[in-house]
Simulated assay, not measured.
Amino acid sequence: MRNYLTGTAVAALTLAFAGEALATEWNVSLWGKRRAFTEHVEKLAELVNEKTGGAFTLNISYGGLSKNKENLDGIEIGAFEMAQFCAGYHRDKNPSITVLELPFLGVNSLEQEIELSMAVYQHPATVEDLARWNATLLMPSPLPQYNLVGVGDAPASLADFEGLNVRATGGIGKAMETVGAVPTSMSATEVRQAMDSGVVKAVAFAPHAHMSFGTIENGAWWTSNLNPGTVNCPVVVNTDALNDLSEEHRAALLGSVEESLAHYVDNYNNNTMNAWGPALDERGITQVTFSDGDIEAFKAAAAAPAAAAWIEENKARGLPAQELYDLVTGMIAEGNS
């Protein structure tokens, strides 16, 4: 009987270890707190868990694994398997996707932003660019046009931006330079302190980030129609980790991207944007609306020069820069026709 029980126990332990070996856990590096910007990752984790019966789990960390500007480095060395980052945080590390951050591209919806991003992400030059970091682009974090929340006197015209210290990354920062502003690149988590201390007088964000990172708590004005562009913040996975997944787990992950993005868009459009106007009104924030002439002048000064400079700079890097730019602008023209 003793030998029989021992054998049974060994068999049970063997089965238990086998089940444990089949389970997969990925660590996911985000930052800040759960918000509209991370809802697709949260939904992805939920779907993957459901589809695999808990055998594949995504453990989401908000800042506990890495600083946001170091997430791509963490992916490269395999410190975690999935992460979110913004292209403008380190343009030299991911030049191919910065085409999506050029000012005044004319993107008019989150759905269009997804379509453009996925087309760029799947371009061979982009795949090769991110492969330098052992990274595979999984999905974008589509964002609406950025606008500024600021302190002090509200600008009455674009001329009032002259000398104003503004938190603005990527192409938005380049655009703000054309109207005399002084752009500063910093991560979202640093913004409130910089605003409180006077390091910056205005911050360019999408609505969810203005609410999540507290700029509207001490802001006095908001630009309702500046719309200089947006940033591109993909979710990436470590390529080796992706390749090591079983067929079932890989299918569960990749097959959940579309639904996760649909959830993100629905949440952003129906929850975040519905809360945005009341949040401004409750705090008495002045809405600044520029004239059509000002906006056209801003666009003329910023768009074409920024695009030409981007193409020249990235052609020198060896990227098919004109091809990537034409891909994006061609899709936008077709979609907006």
Rank of each mutant, 00 (worst) to 15 (best):
R2T: 06
A12T: 00
A18E: 03
E20Y: 12
V28H: 02
G32T: 08
K51H: 13
A55W: 11
A55P: 04
I60H: 03
K67N: 14
E70N: 13
G74E: 01
Q84P: 05
K93C: 08
V99D: 04
F104A: 07
F104R: 07
V107D: 06
M118E: 14
A119T: 05
A125R: 07
V127E: 13
D129V: 02
R132S: 08
N134F: 05
M139L: 12
P142E: 09
L143W: 11
Q145P: 08
G152L: 13
D153K: 15
A159Y: 10
D160R: 02
G171C: 10
G171V: 08
I172S: 12
G173M: 11
A181E: 11
P183C: 10
A188R: 14
V191W: 05
G198S: 01
F213T: 06
L226W: 02
V235F: 12
V235K: 04
T239P: 10
N243S: 14
D244Q: 15
D244M: 12
L245R: 07
H249R: 10
S256L: 07
E258P: 00
E259P: 01
L261S: 02
D266H: 13
Y268A: 05
T272L: 13
W276K: 05
G277C: 09
E282Y: 08
D292F: 02
G293T: 08
E296T: 05
A308I: 04
K315N: 14
R317G: 02
G318K: 01
P320R: 03
E323A: 06
Y325L: 07
I332Q: 01
